[in-house]
Amino acid sequence: MNQRTRRRFLVAAALSAAACLQPTRARAGDAEACFTASEEGQRLRDEGRLREARARFITCGGAACPDLVQSDCAGWLSDVEARVPTLILSAQDEQGHDVAEVRVTIDGAPLAARLDGKAVEVDPGERVLRFERAGNAHVALRLVVREGEKLRRVSVRLVRAGAPGGAAAAPREDRAAPPAGVPLLPITLGGVAAVAGGAYAAFGLSARADADRLRATCAPRCDEADVDAVRTKILAANVAFGVGVAALGGAAAALLLRRAEPAAPAAAAAVHVVPLPGGAAAAVGARF
């Protein structure tokens, strides 16, 4: 016997006893209705239909139901009440003035006949709200409503039917503005600076170790190829240093520009390094 069957058996036994001992409080028909409401409420709650589940729990938590059922339903009712999301709906006309004579539906079902500023309850999940007003193009708003989300503000702007962007035949979905983009340019330049710094350290340490070895073994008559190898590593270290400095400066400049003009399009930057005898010259450029 599984848990649900065992629970149903116990509740049925309690209902039978209650019907016998307290006939004025819980008749057999009332007891069965209480038990049915309890099971339906749990099923609706698990399906995310919280408003319907709450109605069932109110029924089975009433005084006409046996104490055992009342107790369970009261606990479930409290849980569902906390999980039901609420929205505060508003709409403005083209001048930005609030308008109240707006009809709102959710997933095609009526939600509000007019906007009065009061919170409305909805079930959690992905929902489509449709705002309609005489003389205006309707607005369809798709959003994800989360369990326990209370007093979420949802606002739309209505435009005249036939106005640019307001054709009634082309429903418009207002979505929440996307979050600010990841600062790819500063991150990329910072990564270049880090890699260049590692290369600078590696080439520099290797060149120093080779130079010390040549001084200790063959200076001043070392083979020219060995000397050239040391010079090449020194040049590579200097180039890497130049690239690192230029990339670091470019990352800092990109961050400053991003903060100063958050709405500006992303800048395209390039780092130019020119090897020179004994070192390197580096420059960073950007196109906006």
Rank of each mutant, 00 (worst) to 15 (best):
A193C: 08
N238H: 03
C218R: 06
S206G: 13
A137Q: 05
E52Y: 10
R258D: 11
C20P: 00
L256S: 15
L129E: 07
V104M: 12
E32N: 01
A260K: 13
R7F: 12
L248F: 14
E132G: 10
T105W: 09
A167P: 08
A74C: 02
A140T: 11
P183H: 04
A209E: 15
D46F: 06
V120F: 07
R152G: 05
A180Q: 09
R25H: 02
V245A: 11
D107A: 14
L276W: 06
Q22S: 08
R258F: 10
V128T: 15
A201W: 12
H272K: 11
L68K: 03
A82N: 09
V145E: 07
Q22D: 07
G197Y: 00
D30I: 09
C60W: 00
T188Y: 04
R27A: 06
G162E: 09
G135A: 06
A180E: 14
F35Q: 04
L44A: 10
R8L: 15
L189D: 04
P124D: 05
A169T: 10
P124I: 02
V230K: 09
G41E: 00
A194C: 01
R83C: 11
E81S: 12
A199R: 01
G61Q: 04
R127T: 10
F9G: 06
S90G: 14
R103P: 03
A119E: 13
V284Y: 01
V243P: 00
G285F: 08
G148F: 12
V11Q: 14
E121N: 09
M1L: 15
V273A: 00
L21P: 02
G244P: 07
L141K: 02
G181V: 03
A281N: 11
A237E: 00
